[in-house]
Design a protein around this nucleic acid. Sequence first.
DNA 1: GTCTATATACGGATAGAC
DNA 2: GTCTATCCGTATATAGAC
Lengths: 239, 239
Amino acid sequence: MTFAQFSRQAGLSRGDICREILASHRESIKAKKEATAVKNLELIFDATLALANQKGFQAMTVRDLSRATGLSMGALYDYFTSKEELLEMVLSTGRRVVMRLLEKGLQEAEGPVEQLRSAIRTHLFLSEAMQPFFFFAYMEARHLGEEQKERAKQSELATERLLAEIIQRGVKAGLMATADHQMAAALIKAMLQDWYLKRWKYAKRRLSVDRYAGFVEQAALALCLAPGLPSPCGETSKS
Amino acid sequence: MTFAQFSRQAGLSRGDICREILASHRESIKAKKEATAVKNLELIFDATLALANQKGFQAMTVRDLSRATGLSMGALYDYFTSKEELLEMVLSTGRRVVMRLLEKGLQEAEGPVEQLRSAIRTHLFLSEAMQPFFFFAYMEARHLGEEQKERAKQSELATERLLAEIIQRGVKAGLMATADHQMAAALIKAMLQDWYLKRWKYAKRRLSVDRYAGFVEQAALALCLAPGLPSPCGETSKS
DNA sequence: GTCTATATACGGATAGAC
DNA sequence: GTCTATCCGTATATAGAC
């Protein structure tokens, strides 16, 4: 699977996402006509991610948002009741879309090695297609209220667990060998996240997601398939 | 080298750092007696990192800082002339201390493999000893002015280059084999950073830096020493 | 459904007492 | 050297015209 193939079948256009926002916040959004509501929500969604990723959500003012979308202050407040609700709106909808696609993408591969490959690619392609959202969710997580912060942590642990379970099955099947499957999963996850966190670096090098995915696959397999690893307890050699 | 050994020899107490802040900002700090100045700078330094890491530097108000340090608004402004200068003060001093220790720590190892090990441990131990600072510098980097942001990126690239050069020497010496030493360095760096970015996760698992360092060393060597890697250009198998 | 104008609050920074 | 009191700008949110 390449990113081009993934994009075609995923169907996660801005329109789809904003229709989902509208559906799940029907009561608090004043606009009645779906067409205009979705059009304005797209403006708001895009501008919020762009501005917040540049200067931080809390530094971004509603006036900035007004300037960027072309909507007035009053019009904006017809789509959310407070700046905090705007944050919640973007995060909760984004998380729902991501979860749905992650689960869908992982049911097709067979065998631990192919599943690990598939998980890596799906995660990378998803974060490529929705890079502004992934970056936003990562960076703003700690500014959330306790309940929402807990949800963010659970989301991190859930994807780690998904990787760990694949590796565990690989070890049981005798196809993989690693001292600690949870730790292997954590390290792989760190490599996956670097792709959307250091966008500027990889963009400057004109590195495609497909190539990056190839490297991470290699690294993950080197880590999980490597034979005869010493138990990693503090010192691993004279060092 | 273990973290305990590193801590003993490094000598990067809060006092040392704040004496350095004082020295490099002597003109703008109104307090004359070194003892009181350093004492208050320690309060300010600690509280700034704690508050900013919890809610973000820009969301942290000077009034919050006043409450946390026990100093009044007026007193605080005797130590910096603006909130922005406070940010610059913390970041520039921290970066200087980190750079000094990184370079010092790397002159002792011999041979590419030992150097790679040493670089990994030094980086991890440093980020452990100064975790609040590392987290702060990472998270606040994008809120800086253009010049400061450029410095932050250069700092990222510099440590990556350091790793890449070790690996390149290893390949030349026939001790390592990797398709792309820069990419290998980037992935290792991502694993190093996860330690201070996901503190909550590893703390909950009661994982020590020494154990984490062992895992990353293993992963790095698996990645660099692995024999017969296929060239990672997009597809690496039927997949 | 969208706009302008404004109420209200809060944050950064400073002046001047002690 | 530290404090209290205050100025001034700006941000969120709303009321009411069009």
